[in-house]
Structures are given as structure tokens and as C-alpha cells.
Amino acid sequence: MSTQSGKLVVGISSRALFDLEDSHAVFETQGREAYCEYQIEHEEDVLEPGVAFGLVRKLLALNDQAERVEVILLSRNSADTGLRVFNSIAHHDLPITRAAFTSGDSPWRYVSAFGADLFLSADPDDVRAALAAGCAAATIVPGHSIAADEGELKIAFDGDAVLFSDDAERIFKQHGLAAFTEAESAAADEPLPGGPFKAFLEALTHIQAEFDPAECPIRTALVTSRSAPAHERVIRTLRAWHIRIDEALFLGGMAKAQFLRAFGADIFFDDQATHIGPASGMVAAGHVPHGVANESEP
């Protein structure tokens, strides 16, 4: 939870919130001036929901009886071209009132100033900068599945390099599965170090505690390639952290996409592009460019 507001604060880029692919294509092919003209010409045209739109709507619905969540727009648009974005926010009846428009510069530097607990963007460079500054962040990947506006908010997380550090994943990458399994079994009683999304899951757990468990509108899942016996350290780590996880799927290397669809995830966070790609065709997916899987080969 943001210490500044006592709420869960989520920063989101305009391209993650709305479908801006057409206008972004203008920017990529014709430049900033043509992009600005395009946005002003289409100022009254309402933007369609983007990949993270359903997630944002469900997050804001948690404010039904108390102010638990705030969503802030962090955009590379200028205030002038951003008018279309705010018009679309009003049209879709989203209670988003705070924003930073940076006229092409990276908006990640305002993540800390706003006290954001999570930053979602379509720009990988902005996401990496936010992660380096200590904020949970993910690159929203274009996909065909948009979360439903109704029902529980369901968020799924990978384990290593997302909820946990990448210490164990480094052993796997450098020495193989047998060494990884042996190391995790030997350290089963030692809690794993926290990863970039630990604090975000803690904030969700804090909100969950405000509800009757039978009526809680938030459901979380750990979806990991780990399997027994490497599962024990994960379970004991979450217990040591006093963090609630509603479902835990230990897949032993199986593909994750079908399981995420079965869970009904509104978003899934993973550090590995090989998992994010297939998942993005079924659920909203955020790539977390953190840890050994995202380091360049020497």
C-alpha cells in the first residue's frame, strides 16, 4: 500500500488502458507532429478498451464502500493530445482524476512521486526503469483477450523473479534441473528473498483482509513451473511472509496458458517471454523484465 495515501496506487499508461495501436502506428511511421495532428483530429472519437482496461475497471470497483484503490494515468502524450484520453476515460465512466502527461519523455519518474505500487505500460524501457527504481512493473503485451467487467478480480503471478527473487532460477539456468531441485529441497525451511511483486501481493492481501473470505472480490493464484519437491520452499516462504495466495498451481514445466484461462485470470505476470506470449492470446499478460531470464547473454 502506498504510504502516501493508504491506498493501493496503480500507474498505467494510455496504451495499456486503451487501444491506441492505430495512433501509435501513425507515430511510428510519420513522427510526433503527425501523431499530434491525428489525436487532435480524433479528439471526440472514443478510444476502445485496451488489454488492461478490464483489470482497471475491476480494481476501481473495489472502491464500492471504501477508497481502497487509485489508478493514475502516466502518459507520454502531451496535455493537448491527452485530451482524447481523458475524454475516453469520462465516456467509459472511469474514476481516474490524476495524470502526468510528459510530451514524449518517459513518465516512469513520476511513479515514485505518486506513490505507485504497480506500473503497467506498453513501453518496455519505461517498465525496466520503474523496476530498477523499486516499483512492481510490467509491460502489457498486445493480446486478443480482454478481462470481463464483472465478477471477481483474479490476478495470477509466476513465482521466481516475480514474487520471489531469481536466486533459484539462476541455479536452474546455470546448473540444470537436478541442481535446482537439490538446492531447493536443502533450503526448504529458508524463506526465499522477495521479488519485485512481493509488495504488490502484500497490498492485495491487505485489501482481501477487509472482506469476509466467503465474499472477497479478489482471488490470487501462483502459477509456477516448479513441481514437488521444489514446491515446499514456496509454500513455506508465503507462510513466513504472512501473504495469502488463494490458488497455487505447480505445473512442473507444463504450458501455463490453458491453466490461466481455466483460472479466469484478469492479468498474469511472468518474467519469461516464452510463457507470456502464449498466455496473451487467452488472458491479459504483463511481462516482468527482471532477473536472469532477461539478462543478455555474454
Rank of each mutant, 00 (worst) to 15 (best):
A203V: 01
A133T: 02
A136I: 01
A148M: 08
A183T: 06
A130H: 10
P107F: 08
A100R: 15
A90Q: 13
A100M: 14
E150W: 02
T102H: 07
G151V: 01
L177P: 00
E152R: 13
H91A: 13
L204H: 10
D189Q: 13
P191M: 06
S103E: 14
C135K: 04
F164C: 09
T102Y: 08
A137I: 04
A129T: 03
A178R: 12
E152Q: 15
A138C: 11
H91S: 09
A187Y: 00
A138E: 03
E184T: 07
D166W: 01
L94I: 04
A130T: 04
D126Y: 05
D93E: 11
F101Y: 15
D105C: 01
D189N: 12
F101K: 06
D160M: 05
A161M: 06
E202D: 15
A188I: 00
G194C: 08
K154P: 01
D149Y: 03
A100W: 14
A199S: 15
D189L: 03
A161D: 06
L120A: 01
G195A: 08
F114N: 12
V127Y: 03
L118Q: 08
A156T: 05
D166L: 02
I96A: 01
K154S: 06
D126A: 10
D166A: 02
G134D: 12
V141F: 11
A133Q: 13
A116G: 07
T205V: 02
R109K: 12
R170N: 09
D105E: 13
A147C: 08
K198F: 10
K173Y: 10
P191T: 04
A203E: 06
S112I: 01
A130S: 14
L177K: 14
G159N: 11
F157N: 07
S185E: 14
I89A: 00
I96T: 05
T102F: 05
I140L: 09
Q174R: 14
L177A: 02
A100H: 14
A90N: 09
P191A: 08
K154F: 03
S185L: 10
R98F: 06
A136G: 04
E169V: 00
G143I: 02
G134M: 06
A199C: 09
F114A: 09
K198D: 07
A132H: 12
D126I: 01
A187K: 00
A168H: 01
F172M: 11
A113V: 04
S112R: 14
R170S: 11
A137W: 04
D125E: 15
E190V: 08
P95G: 05
V162W: 00
G194Q: 12
P196Y: 12
E150R: 06
Q174S: 14
A148Q: 15
V127L: 11
A188M: 02
S121T: 07
V162Q: 09
W108F: 13
E182P: 00
L120N: 03
P142G: 03
E182F: 00
G143E: 05
P193N: 05
A156L: 06
P196M: 03
A188E: 04
A186F: 03
T205C: 10
P193F: 07
H92A: 03
A178F: 06
L201P: 07
F119H: 09
I96M: 06
A183Y: 08
L94T: 09
A156C: 10
F197A: 07
A161R: 02
G104V: 00
S103L: 04
G143H: 09
R170W: 12
T97Y: 15
A161Y: 08
